[in-house]
Amino acid sequence: MVLTVTMNPAVDREIYLEDFQVNKLHRIRDYTKTRMSPGGKGINVSIALSRLGIPSIAMGFVGGHMGRILLEELRRTSHLITTNFVHVDGETRENIEIIDEKRHTITEINFPGPEIKKSDLEAFLRRYRTVLARANCVVISGSLPLGVNEEVCAELVRMAKESGATVFVELVPSIVEKMLLAGYAPDVVKLDLRESGQTFFSRKLETFEVHVEIAEEIASKSKLAILSYEVKNDIVALDGEVWMITAREEIDLSHTLGAGDAYVAGMVYYFLKHGLKPLEMAKYGFAAALASTRMKEKTWPTLEEIERELSFFDLERVK
């Protein structure tokens, strides 16, 4: 069973506009131009896996009216997703994504979410420990809510590894740094680089060379490291090798919502079916992400759609 952890889930609201401008009233008259769905990176992985017929348990914190909406929507999405959330005071956040179909841009506004009390975190850790007995694969991804410090993620990795699970993470560099410093390296690391200007151990993630260097450094402790480089490339490092995967066609930036989560789901799917084969997992994940970018809305590809994409990218060894 796959266990996904989303500490700070959200109700995602996608809004499609023709010509988004700041300081201007935009009135939506067509309901097909707006969509509400359960979100947060781990939850997205659970939903994407359910499209591939893979059951999972989704864990995290929810609160208030928005939390109840999120759970109802998630349960409606698929019976392959078992929910296991700690209910907290405060409201689950809403994430607003404004997709401009004319200018091909995405503007995202992410709320902070409820503040997590010490007792809520303790309740979560106890449930997590119990559910780990059922999990052979754990996915930890997304942002952290207020009240949860970055060291908690290293603790989650430690507990999962001790229970014998294979651990995938998609997290911001600062959290991955802490995991590596604590000596608890996940098996698969995909850095969440959506925010610009991020650093990894004080190095700015700007040039190709720095991306390669950091991927190698992570892979020296994990089995697979993946870093996005510009929109259409991924740097993939494993066992002394570094590869670059490049999409053959240009990718529309406004179609990239959820692509990173589809990537992780693709890797998890490949791992469950074929075992831990890092380069093959990365290729499958890339194909899943590519398939998700074919549609403008946040959608999750089927197996056929993923496999069709396997011939639409190039693989080159760079080191």
Partner: peptide, 14 residues
């Protein structure tokens, strides 16, 4: 039962 149930692990420890 599987056609109607809610797959949710909300519970309390003893």
């Amino acid at each position: 039962v599987r056609d109607a149930m809610v797959y949710d692990l909300s519970a309390v420890f003893e």
